[in-house]
Design a protein around this nucleic acid. Sequence first.
DNA 1: GTGTCAATATTGACACTGTCAATATAACAC
DNA 2: GTGTTATATTGACAGTGTCAATATTGACAC
Lengths: 208, 208
Amino acid sequence: MTTLTLDEKISKYHHGDLRNTLLALGTEMLSEAGVAALSLRKLAQRAGVSHNAPYQHFPDKESLLAAIAEQGFRLLGEAMDSAQANPTYPDPIERLIATGQSYVTFALNHPAHYQVMFGPLNNDAYPDLKATSHDTLAKLINIVAALQASGHLRPTPPLDLAATIWSCMHGLSAILIANKLPDYIRTQRDAAALSATMLRHLLTGLLA
Amino acid sequence: MTTLTLDEKISKYHHGDLRNTLLALGTEMLSEAGVAALSLRKLAQRAGVSHNAPYQHFPDKESLLAAIAEQGFRLLGEAMDSAQANPTYPDPIERLIATGQSYVTFALNHPAHYQVMFGPLNNDAYPDLKATSHDTLAKLINIVAALQASGHLRPTPPLDLAATIWSCMHGLSAILIANKLPDYIRTQRDAAALSATMLRHLLTGLLA
DNA sequence: GTGTCAATATTGACACTGTCAATATAACAC
DNA sequence: GTGTTATATTGACAGTGTCAATATTGACAC
């Protein structure tokens, strides 16, 4: 397979890799101006292609968004994986905290993308999206189960624990992206610090 | 003020209370078919008014959505208030848990409305929305501060604790609405039970 | 190579949307 | 009443998602 630059792809009649190009440029437009500003026609134009070419690769706009969301879950999963693989934190609990931070950091670095991932898409209508999001959750469940096996975490149902941690991290991400925590978070460092604080609270409990 | 039925309002040239009618019918459409299906023109038609009448009360569609979101935060606040006032739970910690459950229950009963509240609206562009959402958060902060004063919760910064609890409840709500927790939650009772379980985990900690 | 076919892209059309400008109607102050 | 203001209507426009019909290309059989 000859590797073409994006500009080369655009110049040909048969684009060659339009589907991936649309995903890439769509994600780009998303981060530039948000979901509301993402139109199929502008996207096609940016890809150097007629306004109906995307329909060869996606049955409708929502399917494109679902594919973008799916890719987002993959990227998020990779971010979590690399946090888990980071040798900076030999203690597995610290590694869990670092993983949570990487989750929130990912969300804040790609707010529009993240919003599509948890937006009004009907999950059940897109089996690939559903499978990918489940895979991402599975990563967290595995981490939790390992921490239970090593005696670090309570031996309650791992799905309960994973759901709790996930809810906390997702909730913080969404609240920060929606800007509902006023005059509190100013820098990304603040957000990372807050996510660590929250995870420690979660781990040790809130009761006096 | 003569109280008119909704149908009476619709039949008059000068509607009389179009703004509130649009909010009510808009919320109705939202719950029927989701954000994507909410169009200003269909809404105007349902209100029995020309397609441009809404512009007398909202500068654009997004402002309408912001007003609907604002109203959502008010309703959510009322739900939390009445959970706090519920005499069924004399123990303040149990009352906190019940309040959390009422939060999640509200979200699951009005999924589309809830999604608009945390959707891609630019919070800063709508001061009223911002103020109302802050008021809702303030309720939670007050509850937490009272529980600290009575010695039930740790004396760490109350905003930290409130943010943690809120993140957990919002995260669970959003994940359930987006249907990302597969084959786990089948009934609303399940969701309420899960939210209580999560809050108890949060209160007592996850560590072994 | 040539011919055929399926994949891919284009053109043109349509209904629908949000929004603007100009106009009409009603309510109200004086 | 008269005039002013708030409210609603009509008509227009560009932009959107999507459909149907058509054109172009690349691949593969022969």
